[in-house]
Every structure is written in C-alpha cells, then in structure tokens.
Simulated assay, not measured.
Amino acid sequence: MSAAPLVDAYDLVVFDLDGVIFLIDRPIPGAVEAVARLGGDGRAFAYATNNASRRSADVADLLTGMGVPATADQVLTSAGAAATLLAERLPAGAPVLVVGAPALHAEVRAVGLVPVTGAEEAPVAVVQGYGPRVGWAELAEASLAVRAGALWVATNTDRTLPSPRGPLPGNGSLVAVLRTALGREPDVVVGKPEPALFTAAAHRYGAARPLVVGDRLDTDIEGAVRAGLDSLLVLTGVSGPADLIAAPPGRRPTYVAADLGGLFAPADALRVPGKEPAGGGWRVTDDGVGWRLDGAGAPLDALRALCAAAWSGGPARRVTGVSAQARAALKELGLD
C-alpha cells in the first residue's frame, strides 16, 4: 500500500461547503486545519456550493472569518452560475423574477438583467434559489410567471441543508412547491449534480485532475460522477454510512473518509469499496438472511467492506456484528 497522501494524486481540490467546511455558521472540526494545510503546501483548491443565499465575496468573507483560507475567486456559487446562464440566454435589461435571497438578486443585476418581484412586471424568466425568508407570496408570483411562459431556472434542487440541529428544508423543497403547483420540472437546474460548477472550477485553475470533496451523494458525488471526476465523501454532513452502502452506481464516490483529514491519508486506505487485507481485517458473509460482519479493525474499513458486499451485485441487507469489535464498529457507524 502506498503511503503517499490521497491529495498527492490531484492538482485541484474542489470543496463543497455546507456539511464539508461548515454547518450554517460553524466550522466543522478539522476543516480549518485541513484547508490551511493545503494552502501551506501550495496546493490549489476551490469551493463549489449549491447554496444561492450568498455571493462569492460574501462566502469568502464568511470562510475567512472562520479561519478558513478563501478569496472570492476561489468560490463558485449556483447563484452566480444561474445569473451567467440567464445572461447568455436573455437580452441585456430583460426582467427576471427572482425567488431567493438578496444575493441572487445582486447576481442577476450584476450581469445586466433587471430583477423583479411580481408576475405583473412581465418577467421573461424566473430564477429560484434558496432564501431563508422565501414564502408563499414569492412562490405564487413565480407560479403565475411560469404559467405565462417565463423560463424557469432553479439554482439547485437540494432537498435539505445540513445544520447543527439536523437537516433543514433546502431549495429543492421550495422547488417542489412549484413543481406540485405547475405539474412540471424546472426548465434548467444549474447546480450540482449538474457538472457545471466542477468543470468551471477545473477550467479556472487549468486543472487536469481535480478531486471533488462533498458530503452528499445526490449532489456532490453524483455531480463528480457525471463530470468524470474522482470524489471523496466525508461523513460530516448529510449522507451517512447506510446511504453509502445503498448508493447506486451513479452516486458512488472513489473514496470515503470520516472528515477532511482523509485528504492526507493513503489513498488505498480510503478507496471504496475496500479490499480485504491479506492479514485479515473485516469479513462480510451472507447467511441467507442478512450479512454478518466479523473481525476487527477501524470502523471506516468495516464500512468499506460492507460497500464491497453491497456493490458486488446484491441488494443492501441487514447486518449483524459477530465479534465484539464488529458490534462496536456498527454502533459507531450508526448501522446497529
């Protein structure tokens, strides 16, 4: 097994933010140190977030206030990407109904379009992004505008946002309101799992081999798969061990780690599914009723072994720990 750190194989690290670097306004333990170490080693890194409630400069200020190195140029947001897409499709000065936070209004204005708030202003497009104060009145105006023929662009469709108190409704939940009212999907979804943010980051840095780091299988990891990029799932946000075991092929990461410290661990120790070491470790057997986990080792290695069993073709099954170490590992992973 090579002892070289995982990050050595890549020329750019692209981080998701919510659930990877911070939870709402609190840095995740180890995140500050991990990003600072990358910067100290002279490695290139960027941030790609589906959260459309802040502009790039505001995100950079938030990060630096937490002690995480960041500049506005390093931050790619779904709000900025959505505004750019609209500017490419619409004439300058076109009215766009904005449903979201002030940051999304500012991004639309910055590309030469005119943000409006009512369907009576004849918007030619509706752009919908997360905003903690979005309510029925804004959604009603958007519904009327789309029914009248406006282009409907969603910055992203994350169903939830991670928080210290647990998952909260995300923009996908708000999009679902209009989807139900209108009986159709948005015309365009800009953010992850669409690969645009990742490809834009690679282009910006001239990177040939980026690594995507995220906490969500349905956005970060699926987006990396669609972009043809390797990815690292960290277990500090939305997707947990049970989600990983049950992940379909299009949502399977290259590596899994407990947190961002995994960037500096050997790649073979994080690759998923994991290979059983020659000297022993974890063993997963099928007794016809469920899986039996036996052996000893790190809980993360047990998770990798369970992924190997699940991803070999059969469906995920109930798992029982045989040894005391196995039962402890399953408890730590939340699989007991």
Rank of each mutant, 00 (worst) to 15 (best):
D220L: 08
E194K: 05
V213D: 00
S163W: 05
P266S: 00
G281W: 00
D58P: 01
V127A: 05
G42S: 10
P102R: 04
T64E: 13
W291I: 11
R159D: 11
W136R: 13
L90N: 06
R26N: 06
L63T: 06
P132G: 05
V322M: 04
A81G: 08
T219M: 06
S231F: 02
R133C: 08
A34T: 14
V134H: 02
D243F: 06
E332L: 15
Y205D: 02
G183F: 07
Y47A: 09
T199I: 08
T320Q: 10
D301K: 07
V7S: 03
L76K: 00
G314L: 14
A154W: 11
A176K: 01
A154R: 07
P162R: 02
E107M: 08
V127W: 05
L90Q: 08
T117I: 14
S53G: 06
G240D: 12
G262C: 09
E121P: 04
R327D: 12
K331H: 15
A119D: 05
A103R: 01
R43L: 12
L293G: 03
A142L: 07
L232M: 02
G262W: 10
A137Q: 14
R283Q: 14
V13C: 06
V289Q: 13
A46E: 01
T285L: 11
A94P: 12
V289I: 14
G261A: 09
D158A: 10
R204S: 10
G279Q: 13
G30V: 09
D25I: 03
A148P: 01
F45V: 12
V124E: 08
G295P: 02
G129K: 09
A119L: 08
L62Y: 07
P27C: 10
A265C: 12
F264M: 09
P102S: 07
D8Y: 13
D187A: 04
F264I: 11
G118Y: 15
S143Q: 15
R179N: 10
A265K: 12
A44I: 05
L63N: 08
A316M: 13
E138V: 10
